[in-house]
Design a binder for these strands. Structure first.
Lengths: 337, 337
DNA sequence: TTGAAAGCGCTAACAG
DNA sequence: CTGTTAGCGCTTTCAA
């Protein structure tokens, strides 16, 4: 790799002049500029940006902690991040953490060791060693999609409670009275929020909350399938199932169909996220659309503002949702709209 | 951010001793080690790894160019990469390139500017400016999933031709004689290879190749749906459709079902990749399983070997495939097995 | 308009 | 076992 020194030597100027030619060409005479540029071309010089970053103290790297890139919703979020980051001259270092705290902590060290300027966490977990955080101030961090409580950092989130309530109301409006809920990962605030919204809607409709209608899930296809089988084994079956994400719903629909049920005739199923597959299900899935790419874009924008000190206090941005009614939900048996 | 100097000052030793204590503690007396460690703890010292990397000339970063993380197959590949990279102390810089040559070239510059040690490309395109490549040697690069012709770099690939032939043979064995093929992106060698495999099987079975059974696609759900509609409009319909990936197949299945067809009774549909959704389709999808995570792991291993000069020449690694027969393929109408 | 020189934080000879 | 020192490649004063 040729260095700036070799260029200087070949052009017969000082390294300072080479640097200036590349950074602020107008401050260099046309003649030297010419000489330098052809020397650059001749040796194929590319500045060592590692050196530049080291010197400037700015890496222009952002770490993103994502539980799993295999989750289609997250994939969209990342897509949005990448785009905005690139526009601002930042690169994304993506960490597929599998929700593992150790891996998250490891990657967070990239910020602590000056390898990245900031971090975006898509899960409700503070990846920075708390002793460090308390003792020596916070590192630039943004929380997206989830809600990291007890830490003062910008948050980009959905009003999950309202959205879940809206979906539950949709099911209620179709005459459903026994509505099961297949939850997301246990320790996630998002899961609690969606549950709360579900309960809100039931309470408002004067329906008693029945804990036996709650089923565990973890946002995977398999977990939806498993939960649906449990529902099928239940004595007094629900007539509708609200799944906390689309993958779960798709897994559940399969289990119901394998058991010979017709969707939505025998069972209504709703999801959450509106991933691409939702529209291509059989039947197409009723779900809540979230602006996934916009989540990513917003999170990156906030983080860069934080890094560049344009932010005075940590805001909470609430993104809009949209109820998408497709064909996986229908009237409850015997219901007269 | 405290530096090594502050630690040295506080511990009353030289910076070299601090560095040694951290790198090779055994070369330092227990007493000084003690002093240094408590000074490190007291100021909350974290080494500036940017400086370390700059000095060592090794970044331990790998750039990965992926057409789109939203493709579930690629998501799995990336997952495998991340894992292996982490094991070797490397980080993955993921670039969601959308198959855009300009974006790819931009990210490739990270290698050229010493911000990353090497690159993995998942598409058949050389992201390095060819003049640079020719003039000044190659950068460490590995091609995975696709086949980058005309460049001598390690390749991790599937025998796409054999795999496609195997799937076509499966369909032929079910009595299908008119088999449509929904292709992948136009300019992809992988697409050509799968087409070749399809033709191999037909030729071997003594069936004339009919160009009207070829349909364009781009690996998206939507493109499968669109192609299936074209098939439905055709005069002399095929009885089976082989899709070059699972997303395409899932899109196609929906279109067929919307037209009132029963799968596989009226139409057999096969995919390629065995993504998670394949098993949860209705009906579950017959497909070719590829060891996606293993692709990622192998590519990273090769790249690291290349970077660390453990590789003398560029190998081509052929990964195994497996024909997964599920319920989306069945006997051709009137066929007596 | 240009050059000399300092220094970013760290490691690795080399001396002691 | 420990300290001194040079230097990685670059930018940026400060002088000339």
């Amino acid at each position: 790799m040729p260095t700036i020194r070799e260029v200087a030597l070949l052009a017969g100027v000082s390294v300072a002049t080479v640097s200036r030619t590349l950074q602020q060409p107008e401050r260099v005479s046309p003649k030297t500029r010419q000489k330098v540029m052809s020397a650059v071309a001749e040796v194929g010089y590319k500045p060592n940006l590692m050196a530049v970053k080291f010197r400037s103290g700015k890496t222009h790297n952002l770490v993103v902690l994502v539980p799993t890139v295999a989750n289609v919703f997250f994939a969209r979020v990342i897509s949005g991040m990448q785009q905005t980051a690139a526009e601002h001259g930042y690169a994304i270092l993506l960490a597929n953490t599998l929700g593992n705290a150790t891996i998250e902590t490891d990657y967070a060290k990239m910020v602590q060791t000056s390898q990245a300027d900031g971090l975006i966490q898509l899960r409700a977990f503070n990846p920075f060693d708390s002793s460090v955080v308390n003792g020596h101030g916070l590192y630039p961090m943004v929380n997206a999609c989830e809600t990291l409580e007890q830490i003062a950092c910008p948050v980009v989130t959905l009003d999950n409670r309202r959205a879940a309530k809206a979906m539950t109301e949709h099911l209620l409006s179709l005459g459903h009275r026994r509505i099961a809920l297949i939850k997301g990962p246990k320790d996630s605030p998002l899961t609690r929020q969606r549950l709360a919204g579900y309960q809100d809607a039931l309470a408002q409709a004067g329906i008693d909350f029945d804990e036996r209608l709650l089923f565990a899930g973890d946002f995977t296809l398999q977990s939806g399938h498993t939960a649906a089988q449990q529902i099928l084994n239940q004595q007094h079956r629900p007539t509708a199932v609200f799944c906390e994400n689309d993958e779960t719903a798709i897994g559940a629909i399969q289990a119901f169909k394998q058991a010979g049920m017709k969707i939505p005739h025998d069972m209504s199923v709703a999801g959450f996220d509106d991933i691409a597959f939702a529209r291509f299900c059989d039947p197409p899935l009723t779900t809540i659309a979230q602006p996934a790419e916009e989540f990513g874009r917003t999170a990156v924008t906030l983080l860069i503002d934080l890094i560049e000190q344009k932010l005075t206090k940590a805001p909470t941005v609430i993104m809009p949702y949209e109820l998408i009614v497709r064909e996986s939900t229908g009237p409850a048996p015997g219901f007269q709209g």
